[in-house]
Structures are given as structure tokens and as C-alpha cells.
């Protein structure tokens, strides 16, 4: 009987600790995805500023660069060929990232702003518009790192503590 109880408590402690660690991991993954977005924007800016490629061409070529953006690019390319408006398509598609990435509301808003810049940029303002995007994204990444430090540690500790708490209560 005691061994069953000990095993049960151990399972509770291990699973709650794992849950805490897994939850903390989402903060790390968000930073990784934001950094991937940052690299992608650099590539897109290069394509725009130096090669003057059009957005459909860029989306086609870069659809495999960042795996979680693949569906965004591909869906836009399909829908744009029937004459839809690029900016609203972009917004519609990045909104879906909420359900399949670690990005939060703020990050999605940033992506929407990126879409606006891509569609509205002209040769005169493209450099400045991208500079604005980089500044904003750097700030978002900085905050995400801070958040990961604070909340990551918090959820890891909470996971362990919750497991211990349950063990004490039911011991």
C-alpha cells in the first residue's frame, strides 16, 4: 500500500514539475520564433531594397525559410492570385499563427504592422520603415527575454512546489 502511495506521489511531483518546465519552455520558444521572424525580415528587406523583387516572388522563394510562416506565405499566394487585397490577406493569415505558434497578441500585432510596411513601402521610405520595424522587434525580443527570465523561473519553481504541495497534502 505504502509503495503504491509513494509511487503515486512521485508521479504527481514528476508530472507537475514537467508541466512547469514545459510551460516555462513556451517562453523560450517564443524568443526563438521572434528571432526567426527577425531573420526573415532582414532577408525580405534585402530582397526589396537590393533586388526589387515583388512580394509574391519573395513569398514564393522564402516560404521555406521559417517553417511556421510557410502556411502564411502559401495561403497568401493562392488567394492573391484571385485578386484579393494583400494587406487584409496578410492580417488574416498571421492571425492564425496564434493557434500554432508561441507568439502572443503583441507579436501578432507586430506582424500585422510588418504586413502594412511591406505593402505600403516605396523606394523612398523603405529603409526607414524597416528601421522602425527592427527597433520595435528588438524591443519585443528584449521584453520576451526578460519575461522568460522571470516567468520561466517562476513556472519551473511553481511546478515543483505544486507537486510537493500535493504530496504533502495527500501524504
Amino acid at each position: 500500500m505504502l509503495s503504491v502511495k509513494v509511487t503515486g506521489l512521485l508521479i504527481v511531483i514528476v508530472s507537475s514539475t514537467m508541466f512547469g518546465f514545459l510551460y516555462a519552455e513556451t517562453y523560450k520558444n517564443r524568443i526563438l520564433q521572434l528571432k526567426e521572424i527577425s531573420n526573415l525580415i532582414i532577408i525580405i528587406e534585402t530582397e526589396i531594397r537590393f533586388y526589387k523583387r515583388t512580394l509574391p516572388v519573395i513569398f514564393d522563394v522564402q516560404s521555406n525559410t521559417v517553417p511556421f510562416m510557410k502556411s502564411v506565405f502559401e495561403n497568401i499566394l493562392v488567394k492573391i492570385s484571385v485578386g484579393s487585397d494583400m494587406e487584409s490577406l496578410w492580417n488574416e493569415e498571421v492571425e492564425k499563427l496564434h493557434f500554432c505558434t508561441y507568439l502572443n497578441e503583441k507579436d501578432i500585432e507586430f506582424l500585422k504592422k510588418t504586413g502594412h510596411v511591406l505593402v505600403r513601402a516605396d523606394a523612398q521610405n523603405v529603409e526607414k520603415m524597416f528601421l522602425g520595424l527592427y527597433r520595435e522587434l528588438d524591443l519585443i525580443i528584449e521584453n520576451a527575454i526578460e519575461e522568460e527570465k522571470e516567468k520561466g523561473r517562476l513556472f519551473k519553481s511553481l511546478g515543483i512546489l505544486f507537486g510537493l504541495f500535493i504530496s504533502v497534502v495527500f501524504a
Binding site: 515583388t54 512580394l55 485578386g83 523612398q124
Partner: peptide, 16 residues
């Protein structure tokens, strides 16, 4: 404006 964007493949910078 929408027509211009369509004619430019939504990429005005490329048609500057």
C-alpha cells in the same frame, strides 16, 4: 489606390 497596388503586384517599391 487598390488598382495601383494590384498593377504593382502589391510592391510599389519594385515599380518606382
Amino acid at each position: 489606390d487598390n488598382l495601383i497596388l494590384k498593377f504593382c503586384s502589391h510592391s510599389k517599391y519594385a515599380y518606382e
